[in-house]
Amino acid sequence: MGKEVMLDCLGEACPVPLIKTENALKKLTIGDLLIVHIDHSCAMKNVPEWARKEGHNVEIEEVDDGEWEIFIEKAK
């Protein structure tokens, strides 16, 4: 199992969470897990879409109403 990294994007609107996610993922190695904490629904559209397009595994937990944790497993 790789390491787990939390990325806090609470209160941040598009495109900030996506840019932060891209940068954070660059620093990780294959098998690592990035957990992006967001509360803007727009980021729920572009962050998972982008990560899947890049070939990573994505799963999301709704931690509260309008608050999510996006789990991205770096796959390549």
Binding site: C14, P15, E22, C42, K45, N46, K53
Partner: peptide
């Protein structure tokens, strides 16, 4: 250029930017 690089499908998401 998809999603983050300038081509978008969601005005409500990316309008403010």
């Amino acid at each position: 250029f998809l999603y983050d690089k300038g081509i978008s499908f969601c005005a409500t998401c990316d309008a403010a930017a």
